[in-house]
């Protein structure tokens, strides 16, 4: 479990670091072809490509987003990460929410990501898109 644990942790941080620094290629490197993201707010699956596109769109209203206080636990074929998402809008206002994502990993890539958060905490932010997009 040691090597797998290390690899899954590295993959988790690689994804969230890529989102933070607005790096779509970095995000894509973490996703397996055909990857899906499921979101508890909509109950729908979206593709990895759509997730990456939504990430870019979100930057139009957000100056910065950080995924802080990450608590990562791994299992044989995936990981769970608990984190605080902090978003700073272009007007300087700031919002934070606590979220959790469970990832299924095959061959070192994320094949499914399930994200859980409280959308009422978004306020003026988008309410229908995952925090990881």
């Amino acid at each position: 479990m040691g090597r797998v644990d290390t690899e899954h942790r590295a993959l988790c941080h690689a994804l969230f670091d890529a989102i933070e620094r607005e790096d779509p290629e970095g995000m894509a490197r973490c996703y397996a072809p055909g990857m899906t993201l499921w979101f508890n707010v909509t109950g729908e699956n979206v593709s990895g490509e759509d997730t990456i596109a939504a990430q870019a769109a979100g930057r139009r209203i957000q100056r910065r987003r950080t995924y802080d206080d990450r608590i990562v636990n791994t299992f044989d074929d995936g990981f769970v990460v608990q984190y605080t998402l902090t978003v700073v809008l272009h007007d300087g206002s700031r919002r934070s929410l606590s979220a959790c994502a469970v990832a299924e990993v095959h061959d070192g890539l994320i094949v499914r990501l399930s994200e859980y958060l409280d959308s009422s905490r978004f306020g003026r932010l988008r309410t229908t898109e995952p925090a990881t997009s």
Binding site: Q82, S98, Y116, S119
Partner: peptide
């Protein structure tokens, strides 16, 4: 226990 859900 850390519980995550959507209050909306």
């Amino acid at each position: 226990i850390d519980e995550y859900m959507d209050s909306s």
